[in-house]
Amino acid sequence: MPEYSPYLFLAVFFAVALGFGLLPLGLARLWAHKFSPAKPGPQKNAIYECGLEAKGETPIQFKSEYYLYAIMFLVFDVEILFLLPFAVAFLQLPLGASIAMLVFVLLIVEGLIWAWMKGILDWT
């Protein structure tokens, strides 16, 4: 039995996967070239809006301040995610684990303090 490189099948697999994807695309391109011409047009390429002409800009403006709420959500979300298992297993944990958790909570709380000082927590 001849020796094969153990990674040869990966190369074969890659080539087959590439061919599997590219062959239909190539056939479709060949078909379009031989029989079916592309017919683009200003209306066909226009933005589709239920038959009406599209009005206004497609990219809408979004208030960038919302990222702050996303950060606050992340702070509390991650906090609850880790604090709950910590609280459940608190009595069995060694001292090192408790200190590590305290550092983690301090890191999270740092974000909260930053947000507090920035005045995001004032719901007016």
Binding site: S36, K39, Q43, K44, A46, Y48, C50, G51, L52
Partner: peptide, 13 residues
Amino acid sequence: APQVVRLFNQMPE
């Protein structure tokens, strides 16, 4: 009618 024609135009061949 213009909307119908535009929808038809926007359909691919």
